[in-house]
Design a protein around this nucleic acid. Sequence first.
DNA 1: GTGCCGAACCATTAAGCTATTGGTCCATGC
DNA 2: GCATGGACCAATAGCTTAATGGTTCGGCAC
Lengths: 234, 234
Amino acid sequence: MNYALNSTDNAAAALAAIRQMIETGKLPANGRLPTERDLAAELGCGRRIVRRALDALETEGLIWRKQGSGTFAGQPPDPTGALAAEIAPDADPLVVMEARLCIEPALADLCAKRATGEDVEKLRKLAHRASQPLDADTAELWDGALHRAIARIAANRVMLTAFALLDEVRMGSDWQEKRHRARSPETMTLYDRQHRDIIDAIERRDGQAASTAMRAHLEALSENLKTSMESSTE
Amino acid sequence: MNYALNSTDNAAAALAAIRQMIETGKLPANGRLPTERDLAAELGCGRRIVRRALDALETEGLIWRKQGSGTFAGQPPDPTGALAAEIAPDADPLVVMEARLCIEPALADLCAKRATGEDVEKLRKLAHRASQPLDADTAELWDGALHRAIARIAANRVMLTAFALLDEVRMGSDWQEKRHRARSPETMTLYDRQHRDIIDAIERRDGQAASTAMRAHLEALSENLKTSMESSTE
DNA sequence: GTGCCGAACCATTAAGCTATTGGTCCATGC
DNA sequence: GCATGGACCAATAGCTTAATGGTTCGGCAC
């Protein structure tokens, strides 16, 4: 595709061209788009125009830039990976679960204070997916997505980073192997019930109840984890 | 001082020599000690002996080593700096305080479950220092040390890392400037009272009460912060 | 044989250097 | 007024190189 602008160049045309460039997905795997200088050459306009268009797209949240590195489509990555990798190797699943019990009830409280109706809708959808009788791995993924969504809705950057750290440690540690996760139909329905309790409390803007419900849910998870670990050492 | 060993060389002598080297504090500021090869040459023994001695010291927790980097005295540093720096620039003091309200009560709970008598002693000493009528900056430092000690005693690596992150964001953000911290004698005595409440609860192994007391303390801090911010915008 | 030494090699790290890239400013021209 | 091209700055990534801990092996003394 040729993105060169015709003679009626203007900022709006450049913006549209770059936006199309992004949305048609004609980008390398890492989402990196051409340098500003290259874009200017390709579009046949000056760098100033390109920068203005990129400014708009950045404000829009469609791209992010880093001086010396480049311009990328999508969201800037979370730099929690290194930290998590440092902790994960010697992360006892019970320690991780204890940390979840510290952080997630508080997040549920904040979430209840800030969730919009739209947010609650999303949560319900995620809970529904997690409750479907798929294989254990998939259910785990949707469960993780639900908890992550609650953290995101809480809208506190510091807490979100702390949660991201916790989340990566949880997924990265060897515990992935240790999950015998005796996810019987009974526990599945229990978890679903607990998810609904949490979301109901969030919808009622009842932070206290959301926190309590989340705590109950995590304690059930913890209990399940303990029994599965004991049975694995037999 | 000459660390060269005499003719009755053995591993124990090398260990003692290196240990003395560390404990007498004859080291550069960063705690880096000579390379294994240099140590071997200086002590007049082989690298194998040096490595065995360093192994012992490492097991002892007196030193830590990193391939390609060197051997250092003390504890390995927490790598939370980069993450904190990423968040700090746009860290609203109120957001940070909200995060503290999420994390620190939970830490106080854990701390109450795990603190030894010795730990409680340390906490009391720190609280006493923070209550001395010094300048506001120094009081702030001792207060920070107290909260950090509670996090350390909680003995959950994941939570400790999360707290370290939070702590660095708190100290690193511009909010250092914004602290008008109207630390009147009244607030000082209030904070001291609250510190004592927290530590008393920890001593009683009453995690619930410790959590509640910590929450009350942080809410007082938050209130103080809000009023000082309002007055600064006048 | 046991234990140590010396040497060599590997894996990782840090530091320095260079090219690249976004961020900014300015003179010029339309 | 506004866009252009150019120049420069600041930050970054990639590469190279030297240094360091980690490991292995042959040799030697006891």
